[in-house]
């Protein structure tokens, strides 16, 4: 059982200690943020995540997986001077899936969360995901479609897109969640290692591939409702992504038929800056 105690009056102190003191031993949590040209959004997100995670009373690490940013994202993150933040720099843009894979495989925590750089799902939801891990699940997905979820400012195009994807995924792939694409997912370390070593898709649909693989390898997956606030400046083009998604559905099945998921795909070691 994971005991999470948020003590409001010590949040700031807990953050300051985390920011300045290297953790010893294995962290309880790793939080992975993929980042491509996020200079406008990433620092407030890091601030919110660092404050909350530090208040939970467990050692944790933050990993920012750059995806070949051409703006000042890398410099901004480096300049923060947070001792338990690791920055993985990519020489070129490889897609969100490639950044998440590098981050997840570099993580050393017992539980590994990946969270989008825009804080569209508030970090405070991590507690409800941890409860499901404690209940015996290997993978827990934040869901914008589950009963109890709250979604704000989502465009009509993205609503239609999400609904259509959900129907397709449930029907064709028998994935037991109603929202495969929410950028807020928690894994046990063993599940993360097994799944992300086999991930082949580097673009938007990597989430779908990961959840497909979870089913293939008999991992237990569940979802919990989350709040989701559509952040202005989203890089998701619904029409383009829908076309890629349909293509990737076929690719995933084809990869499986060819046995490509039975082999570890070790990612190239990232260039690491602590």
């Amino acid at each position: 059982m994971t005991e999470l105690s948020t003590l409001n009056n010590s949040k700031l102190d807990a953050y300051r200690e985390w920011a300045a003191t290297p953790i010893e031993g294995r962290p309880k949590f790793s939080v992975v943020i993929p980042a491509y040209n996020e200079e406008w959004r990433i620092v407030p997100t890091i601030g919110a995540i660092a404050t909350h995670m530090s208040s939970l009373g467990h050692p944790w690490e933050l990993i920012v997986a750059d995806d070949g940013s051409t703006d000042t994202t890398v410099e901004l993150v480096q300049d923060l001077g947070l001792v338990n933040l690791r920055l993985l720099i990519a020489d070129q843009n490889g897609g969100k899936g490639s950044a998440v894979r590098r981050g997840m495989l570099a993580a050393s925590g017992e539980l590994v969360l990946f969270a989008d750089a825009d804080q569209s799902t508030p970090i405070e939801h991590i507690e409800s995901l941890v409860q499901e891990i404690d209940a015996g699940h290997d993978v827990v997905v934040g869901s914008r479609a589950a009963d109890g979820a709250e979604v704000a400012n989502k465009s009509l195009a993205r609503k239609v897109f999400s609904s259509g994807l959900s129907l397709l995924v449930r029907g064709l792939f028998r994935i037991p969640v109603s929202d495969t694409q929410c950028g807020f997912k928690l894994f046990t370390a063993d599940a993360a290692d097994l799944l992300f070593r086999r991930q082949l898709i580097d673009e938007f649909s990597f989430d779908l591939e990961i959840l497909y693989l979870a089913g293939k390898f008999d991992l237990t997956t569940t979802e919990v409702p989350v709040t989701w606030i559509d952040a202005p400046g989203s890089k998701v083009d619904a029409a383009k992504v829908a076309a890629e998604f349909l293509r990737d559905l076929a690719i995933i099945r084809w990869n499986d038929l060819r046995g490509r998921y039975d082999i570890d795909n070790h990612a190239a070691p990232p260039r690491l800056i602590s």
């Binding site: 409001n8 949040k11 700031l12 620092v43 407030p44 601030g47 404050t51 208040s55």
Partner: peptide, 11 residues
């Protein structure tokens, strides 16, 4: 709030 104070410091 604490998170807002941290964000102000980091920026």
């Amino acid at each position: 709030s604490d998170p807002v104070r941290v964000i102000l410091e980091l920026t």
